[in-house]
Design a protein around this nucleic acid. Sequence first.
DNA 1: CGCCTTCTTGAGGGGCGTCAAGCCCAGTGG
DNA 2: CCACTGGGCTTGACGCCCCTCAAGAAGGCG
Lengths: 248, 248
Amino acid sequence: MSHEGRKDIHNSDTPVVCQACEVRHQGICGALDAQQLMRLSKHTIRRKVKGGEELHRGGESSERCSNIMNGVAKLSKLMSDGRQQIVGLQFAPDMVGRTFDSDNSVSVEAATDVQLCSFPRSVVEEIMADVPEMEHRLHLQKSKELDEARDWMLTLGRKSAAEKLASFLFLLASHVDPEHPTSKGAMTIVLPMKRSDIADFLGLTIETISRQLTNLRKRGLIELKDRRTIEISDMEKLLAASEQDLSK
Amino acid sequence: MSHEGRKDIHNSDTPVVCQACEVRHQGICGALDAQQLMRLSKHTIRRKVKGGEELHRGGESSERCSNIMNGVAKLSKLMSDGRQQIVGLQFAPDMVGRTFDSDNSVSVEAATDVQLCSFPRSVVEEIMADVPEMEHRLHLQKSKELDEARDWMLTLGRKSAAEKLASFLFLLASHVDPEHPTSKGAMTIVLPMKRSDIADFLGLTIETISRQLTNLRKRGLIELKDRRTIEISDMEKLLAASEQDLSK
DNA sequence: CGCCTTCTTGAGGGGCGTCAAGCCCAGTGG
DNA sequence: CCACTGGGCTTGACGCCCCTCAAGAAGGCG
């Protein structure tokens, strides 16, 4: 049953599980040749996770890490009294789960349904030791996450509720089609999470989210198709709204 | 004039500038042997920067990156209307400046007087290609920064002004003596920056900083020795105050 | 001493949180 | 088919935390 030929990088030894993988050349796997992929795939588990399920509880040691093949995962931190802050969203082909370092009590949860390709942490670290390019890719991803985290710190610390929500919608829109980062005109997005998650991401309450959504709607920036579907009327204006408060 | 002997890792070819360096074995340089240090040090410039001076303006390309030998640097992001958020503090032996990735418009400024060891970015990247261990160290630093950024997102998004300030003081105290992360009892710290910087770090205003300092003082958690010097009466209590609002 | 920057303290107002009521919709069971 | 239930969402009333504006104190430096 093995597929032969096809123009697959000089070599048809590519593991079967990887051949159909859409993100194979993008994530950290892109650094590996057929042989290395084979080594990794021996320990690989593919799995689907329903939205809302927990992938990893903060504070526990995790022995596996995973590539996101599709869907959205959310990273969050929790205070002892229940207050919560979402500290990151991850999309395909990001890798979730820790390598090397301590976990720092971040929980990972599927925001939407998520398809994962999961590896034992030890194997990933071994391969990384042999293939510096793989660590390099992970390093680049971390850099990107750090940039995003810092962008978000500005949003959390210095923006009004309306600006925060506009920033969030703009962030989502930028992920719909990463190839065309800012299509100028209108655009429809599907919220990957419910209001309470959005509130935890923006450092606000669900009531404020709701009010600011109608605020943006009344200002003609968005249209609510249904609870989860939003049409952005004008990306330019939305971007502007994410940087200056026009509520006055 | 070359220093000979001394028990210096099998080899006295260590560059003169490095021999006296206190952080040589900790930062990214710790990954390099004498020969590689020599290669790097050919392009090294040591310099002192006064507190308040800018090391790098966000949005510009930087051709150099630097190790912090002592002092504190602050990373900040600026909005077009002047609002500002400090997105990170860096201490020795952290490296500041970008490698590989785009700059993402973060400005770097000396908070206190800072001593730097600065390299051309290109040379660092070349050496990194030869010495995976060096990239590994940088990767670990990025991971640490990412953890700190995410901790801070929780603080920015979900904590009250009093909790924010307590968190900040606790953060500083943890950096006074990294070996003894939480000495239990009293402890004196020197604020590395003025009130307006603290405000920009916490997403607050200077007036609120001032008020919350007197708040903490009246609650017996701290004592103000002078404007920049604070005695923390009880680290345990300060930590507690950073996680739950006792203002009621 | 005068001047500037930094910091503190007060008075007042507004943005967002809190509390509460009600709508929408899917699921379940009669 | 409808009643019932429960989760998610919206909207309103009200209050509080923090921002804004302003005045004055405390140092630092020529």
